[in-house]
Design a protein around this nucleic acid. Structure first.
Length: 424
RNA sequence: GGAGGAGUCGCAUAGUUGGUCUAGUGCACUCGUCUUGAAAACGAGCACGCCGCAAGGUGUCGUGAGUUCGAAUCUCACCUCCUCCGCCA
């Protein structure tokens, strides 16, 4: 959500931002509703002032005739007031619907473009492996090794269901341990285990509702399953006033992630590249309300994930997402994509974005700045580790015989084991 | 699941026969005086939103609705927490 005053004063900028993101939004329609809102507000507040004034007089008088006169007058005023308040309620409803649809303005450094293929590569890391044999995909590799069961996954969980077993599960545990230790060594991040079953409000606050509602699982109690720890981490401080000295607040959250993948039924139907349920480490940063600070931490959290990818020895590149590929609230986003040999391309493993105060305004997370003013903190987030690096490791580290070498940094977490081989 | 109790401006509390509550007080916090420095003492400030250039107005006492000329105070629903009982682990 943007500040209505800001929208008023910068309507061309807001319009241009929406256009760049290829999101349809009529700023003038919003301003028209806002005019109506203000007009009614002034009218209502005037009447309330009169009501309060007469009320006070009534307390002071002892003359019954005066009292009943005043009550009679106020009865009429009340009826008018009720009508106007009813009208304001309707206007406020429209106003709010429009306000949560205003897209945040993309940064000037964000490239023009409509969809992900317009994203610009900004960095390449690692070396793409050359195989002297035909590399297999993760499905074949993992199933042959007996560390992934898709059939049973489907039997138990349905479409996109899976089990990781034996060394498959151990490799995933190792990754989690490694990431945890990576951040503890780095310092500054508070590790957190957070809920995935979450109320509606946090989703509105983070911007996943209403725009992304169809990709969320909903329970019969009206709660939702979140697709990322970001939702819970961001809402942790909702409605709170933070101390400036405590900023930035850096959190490393671990949670389940649930995605309906509505609208991507045809995509990545095989294997575990796109699943309904996985586990994820997520970085969230809350910092001072300054663009410079936001940019600084955006680069920092992007770098963290890059370092993890590098430490795992995975070839990767970083792209800056084009405006059309940005979410409603995002100002700028980097996708970190690791090399997937079976597809001969990079696939997304993480996504780093910043929002300015778009999310915190909705979630009401503030701090008092040095100038004595209350400000909304800025928020940023980035994947630390999704479910996909496991797949990338399996494919990039495969041997001709179908065994898999374990990246050096993970070996200590697997009792020194350095390969995954077929159990006899 | 059943019974009872409670939710007030950072924390703790006052307020419960509806009307100077435009919410009092204590603690904490900020600034100042005093002091070599600190503590103590004293003085001042101290919830947040909205409209407005300002003066000022207005709203918020868990949330939402209602009664009333007027609601922190009365009614209803919901949410959260606490205590007890039951059930499960």
């Amino acid at each position: 959500m943007l500040d209505i005053k800001f929208i008023r004063e910068n309507k061309d900028l807001v319009s241009a931002g929406a256009e760049k993101k290829h999101i349809k939004f009529d700023v003038d329609a919003l301003l028209k509703v806002d005019d109506k809102r203000k007009e009614l507000l002034v009218l209502i507040e005037k009447k309330r002032a009169e009501q309060n004034e007469v009320s006070e007089k009534m307390v002071r008088t002892n003359i019954e005739a005066e009292k009943s006169q005043m009550i009679a007058e106020m009865k009429i005023l009340k009826e008018e007031l009720q009508k106007e308040e009813e009208e304001l309620k309707k206007v406020m409803h429209d106003w709010q619907v429009l306000m949560v649809s205003v897209p945040n303005i993309p940064d000037v450094s964000v490239p023009e473009g409509v969809e992900s293929k317009d994203n610009k590569e900004v960095k390449v890391g690692g070396e793409i492996p050359k195989f002297d044999f035909k590399p297999k995909d993760h499905i074949e590799l993992m199933q042959n090794l007996g560390i992934l069961s898709l059939e049973r996954g489907t039997k138990v969980a349905g479409f996109r269901g899976y089990f990781l077993t034996g060394d498959g599960a151990r490799l995933q545990f190792a990754l989690w341990h490694f990431v945890q230790d990576f951040f503890m060594k780095k310092g500054g991040f508070t590790p957190m285990i957070v809920p995935s079953l979450i109320k509606r409000e946090p989703f509105i606050g983070t911007g996943y509702i209403p725009q992304g509602e169809e990709d969320l699982y909903k329970t019969q109690d009206g709660d939702y399953l979140s697709g990322t720890a970001e939702v819970a981490l961001m809402s942790y401080y909702a409605d709170e006033i933070l101390e400036k000295k405590d900023l930035p607040i850096k959190m490393l959250g671990f949670s389940n992630a649930y995605r309906r993948e509505a609208g991507s039924h045809g995509k990545d139907t095989k294997g575990i590249l796109r699943v309904h349920e996985f586990y994820k480490f997520e970085q969230v940063v809350l910092c001072e309300a300054s663009h410079t600070e936001s940019v600084k931490y955006h680069e920092e959290i992007e770098k963290n994930t890059e370092e993890i990818t590098e430490a795992l020895g995975l070839p990767y590149h970083v792209v800056v997402n084009c405006a059309g590929d940005l979410g409603l609230g995002q100002v700028k986003k980097y996708d970190i994509e690791a090399w997937l040999p079976s597809e001969n391309t990079y696939r997304e493993t993480g996504s780093a974005s910043y929002f300015h105060d778009f999310q915190t305004r909705r979630l009401n997370i503030r701090y008092r700045d040095d100038d004595g003013k209350m400000k909304f903190v800025h928020s940023l987030n980035n994947t630390a580790l999704s479910g996909r690096p496991l797949i990338m490791i399996v494919e990039n580290y495969q041997n001709a015989d179908g065994s898999i070498r374990i990246p050096k940094v993970l070996q200590p977490y697997m009792g020194g084991q350095n390969t995954i081989e077929k159990k006899k």
